[in-house]
């Protein structure tokens, strides 16, 4: 206590050293740079898209054609936007059941090892991850050359028996390059993302509740229904929405499969369709300066759409995460 024992008291530095301030500054700069990049994406796309917006005004959102050259250019993003949404919805309808089943299988059903030496669970997880890393160009090629011929039969069947429903109507007789095929491929591409996220969510189910249900005699189906699902509802919705964002933005696989058609079209098994991302990929370099500007404007629409969806998704997910803890 007395200063005699310690002639010179240890000086405590409560200020950060210069190195630390530099370190903090650099990392903070990197963190804030992400803000800047996101803002720049919006600003620069808007600046470059201005000629297109000036040319069409608000009609850019309601026009369906894509005539960017000539004296009276007329173009709009409506059919591409609706096409993107149709493809994404078809993709999700296919991807959601498969992904959730697969995630449940990996989490609840798959044995750790198969035949005592194959690490089955890890193998499945790795395979799902690999599926996500496979380039979209390869999905597109596979979809176009392998899947499409198989899909045509199913499409014909659907249009014959459910054609009266409207969406399965086929007025042209051509079944290839349709929304349905593009949506299927996009669905397959979304599967690994949704599966992996759902698997993570399911694995966070508290083991106490799970074991409690089992000790009360619940079957695995009941455990899934009454324990796993209620705990992971928010996470599931969030991962599906992130899958939706991915499905909306898929360009190359859709560009390979779909035959670009600009009229507004809801006939999913009919040849011809449109999507914003595929439109940009397919029309790049065509249509002159105004065409490029119009494509950038379409890109801006896609950017804003996916941004909104991702923000909502991350909010839902964060809320459910808090509730789950």
């Amino acid at each position: 206590m007395t200063s005699e024992l310690a002639p010179s008291p240890l000086k405590l530095a409560n200020k950060r050293s210069n190195e630390d301030r530099l370190f903090r500054g650099v990392t903070r700069g990197a963190g804030l740079a992400t803000f800047v990049i996101l803002a720049l994406i919006g600003v620069f796309l808007f600046i470059e898209a201005l000629p297109a917006f000036r040319s069409q005004g608000w009609r850019f959102l309601t026009n369906t054609g894509w005539q960017t050259t000539g004296a009276h250019p007329q173009f709009g993003v409506l059919s591409a936007l609706s096409g993107s949404i149709i493809i994404a919805v078809i993709g999700l309808i296919i991807a959601i059941p498969v992904s959730i089943s697969c995630a449940l299988f990996i989490n609840e059903y798959a044995p750790d090892t198969l035949l005592r030496f194959i690490p089955f669970k890890n193998f499945l997880t790795a395979a799902v991850d690999l599926m996500a890393a496979v380039p979209s160009i390869i999905y597109g090629m596979w979809g176009f050359f392998i899947l499409q011929p198989h899909m045509v039969g199913l499409e014909k069947w659907l249009s014959t028996f459910f054609g009266s429903l409207g969406i399965f109507q086929n007025t042209s007789g051509a079944y290839t390059s349709s929304f349905f095929i593009a949506g299927t491929i996009v669905g397959i591409m979304c599967m690994p993302i949704i599966t992996s996220l759902c698997r993570e969510v399911f694995s966070l189910t508290p083991s106490g509740e799970r074991e409690g249900a089992m000790s009360l005699g619940a079957s695995r189906a009941r455990v899934i229904r009454d324990v796993v699902f209620p705990f992971s509802k928010g996470g599931m919705i969030g991962s599906i929405m992130l899958g939706l964002g991915r499905a909306l933005g898929e360009a190359i696989a859709v560009a390979i499969i779909i035959a670009l058609a600009f009229p507004l079209n809801f006939h999913v098994v009919q040849a011809g369709g449109n999507s914003i991302a595929a439109l940009i990929a397919l029309q790049w370099g065509a249509g002159g300066n105004l065409g490029t500007s119009a494509l950038l404007a379409a890109g801006l629409v896609l950017f804003i759409l996916t941004l909104i969806i991702n923000m909502i998704a991350s909010r839902i997910v964060n809320a459910s995460k808090m509730a789950g803890r």
């Binding site: 903070r28 963190g31 804030l32 992400t34 803000f35 990049i37 996101l38 720049l40 994406i41 620069f44 796309l45 600046i47 470059e48 992130l242 964002g245 991915r246 909306l248 933005g249 898929e250 360009a251 991302a277 940009i280 990929a281 494509l295 950038l296 890109g299 896609l302 950017f303 996916t306 941004l307 969806i309 991702n310 923000m311 998704a313 991350s314």
Partner: peptide
């Protein structure tokens, strides 16, 4: 800014690849 940076990174990770392309084109 931690929270907002995290949200922005999430939003960026959901940005379609083609948007990154057109952005670099414009800038």
């Amino acid at each position: 800014f931690t929270k907002s940076v995290r949200v922005v990174v999430t939003a960026m990770s959901g940005t379609p690849a083609i948007v990154a392309g057109v952005f670099i084109y414009s800038i």
